[in-house]
């Protein structure tokens, strides 16, 4: 590395400019890399579910008897719409419409909470009907896959609420919209994963 290059690098760091050569900041690039690794995690969990979904005992209830498709469809729709509210929050923040960005942030968190609430309700119903985590391999793989997704949504809600609090304290302005964009990427990823889970786990013929 030449002296000029070293000077340039040290200047970039001292200015707090952490842009990558890909035209996005390192923070955003880091989120993309994390999401790439999360794809592998969910890919493995979905494959495991596909392999084990038919491994049920003769008296156990299977996916066809357990799933309540209309209920899960509503949950899926709610999560899908939360992707819209988060992009609306981002555009509102970019144009410095702080009040509207807060409303959309709150709406996204509420929609996410409704989805998680629906999942908790679904798990409770399954448990009461006799499908526990260790009942059979179908139960184990199903609860692991959808439970991991539920935890991702919950973490997303916590991050969105922390941004909401920052916004209320005046620490989230249009100049810092990238914070929300990065959390938004995570949120959309969670939505994309659910699109795949909903189709493969719930809708594919059993």
């Amino acid at each position: 590395m030449t002296d000029t290059a070293i000077d340039q690098t040290s200047n970039e760091h001292s200015d707090g400019d952490h842009g990558s050569t890909l035209g996005v900041s390192n923070d955003k690039l880091g989120m993309w890399v994390f999401l790439g690794s999360d794809c592998l995690l969910f890919g493995g969990l979905i494959s495991t579910y596909m392999l084990y979904k038919d491994r049920i005992g003769p008296d156990d209830l299977g996916p066809a008897e357990m799933f309540d498709i209309p209920f899960t469809s509503v949950s899926s729709f709610v999560l899908l719409m939360s992707s819209l509210t988060v992009v609306l929050a981002i555009t509102a923040l970019r144009r410095n419409d702080i009040r509207r960005s807060r409303i959309w942030l709150l709406a996204t968190s509420v929609l996410g909470a409704i989805f998680v609430g629906g999942q908790v309700y679904e798990f409770t119903v399954f448990y009461r009907e006799g499908l526990g985590y260790t009942t059979n391999l179908f139960g184990t793989s199903f609860f692991t896959l959808t439970g991991f997704h539920g935890v991702h949504v919950t973490v997303g809600i916590v991050m969105l609420m922390s941004l909401y609090i920052q916004s209320m304290r005046g620490k989230l302005t249009s100049g810092q919209s990238e914070k929300l964009e990065i959390i938004g990427l995570y949120w959309h990823f969670v939505d994309v994963v659910w699109i795949v889970i909903f189709t493969i786990v719930y809708l594919f013929p059993q």
């Binding site: 992707s83 819209l84 988060v86 992009v87 938004g184 990427l185 959309h188 990823f189 939505d191 994309v192 699109i195 795949v196 189709t199 493969i200």
Partner: peptide
């Protein structure tokens, strides 16, 4: 087919 279209719509437009 529908799943793939939804997947790409979210990644291309929302992300």
């Amino acid at each position: 087919f529908l799943m793939v279209i939804k997947f790409f719509l979210v990644t291309a437009v929302f992300m």
